[in-house]
Amino acid sequence: MFALAYLLQPGSIANARPGNFWDAFFFSIQTMATIGYGVMNPQTDYANVLVAIESWVGLLGVAMGTGIAFARFSRPTARVVFSRVAVVTAYDEIPTLMFRVANKRRNQIIEAQIRVVLVRDEMNAEGQFMRRLYDLPLVRANNPIFILSWTVMHPIDEYSPFYGATLADLEAAETMLVVTLTGIDETVSQMIHARHTYIASEMLWHHRFADILFQKSDGQRYIDYNHFHEVMPVSSQREETNGVVSRSP
């Protein structure tokens, strides 16, 4: 664009071939990039005005490009992995909804906060259809230093929206769990966030997660992430006798 503007006035660029677009184009590049080899230079008031405008545009473009690149590449990414399924099993003799979260980064996530919302279809007292959201209370909703793994647990008691529900009920209501995790990346001190959803078919009753915490011969403990997503059935469940979950799916 600026090269065409220079060509509007013949002879505005010294040492440039008359009417040659490429000379004007390369002079424009040297001006915008503040290179200035000294071979070509403006020699009219018109050309000097264009140089001033193009220099300002070039500086503005560099500043904006630098800011956008810095904001893009300096933003931390939350390398958080969620278990593929959630399970419902007894914990302290109370049926409990559980799923796993792991931090795949080698640093820590400080002041990690997790929130679980149950979303399902309902009919209100007036017979109107609505998509309703319930915040699920958790055994622990925050973690001051999230380093490796975190098992999130929601007790299914009489105050839980899962109370008395079956898998058929959850599927009929198109139930979904929406999980959001936020925290501060310790390396760059910036907020990070991650999100995951579980549909009804991804909530397994009468299953528990496989153990991932092991101990070496020297007594040192370690976590084996190869078993992170593994679940296994549980033969007996106290929640069946307690009547919290009315029947197995």
Rank of each mutant, 00 (worst) to 15 (best):
Q43C: 12
D169F: 04
K216L: 13
I110Q: 05
T241M: 11
A112F: 04
M191V: 14
E240P: 08
R131K: 12
D211W: 00
S235W: 09
T187H: 08
Q9L: 14
N107P: 05
T175Y: 06
N226I: 08
A102T: 11
M176V: 07
A194E: 05
I114V: 13
E54H: 14
S83K: 03
I223R: 12
A86E: 06
N48F: 08
M40Y: 02
S189E: 14
M191W: 09
G164R: 06
A69V: 09
Y134H: 10
L7K: 05
E122Q: 11
L50F: 04
D224W: 07
V117M: 04
G243E: 00
A194F: 10
T175Q: 05
P18D: 06
Q9F: 12
Y163F: 15
A141T: 02
E54G: 06
V87T: 05
I212A: 06
L170H: 02
M153A: 14
P18W: 03
M98C: 11
V231T: 03
T89R: 09
V39H: 15
Y6F: 07
A102W: 07
F209G: 04
E54V: 11
W56K: 13
A3L: 01
T241D: 10
N107D: 11
L97E: 03
E171P: 00
A141Y: 02
T175P: 09
V245P: 02
S83T: 09
D224A: 10
Q220F: 12
N124D: 15
Q237R: 06
R238G: 11
V139W: 07
M98T: 07
D45H: 07
V119F: 03
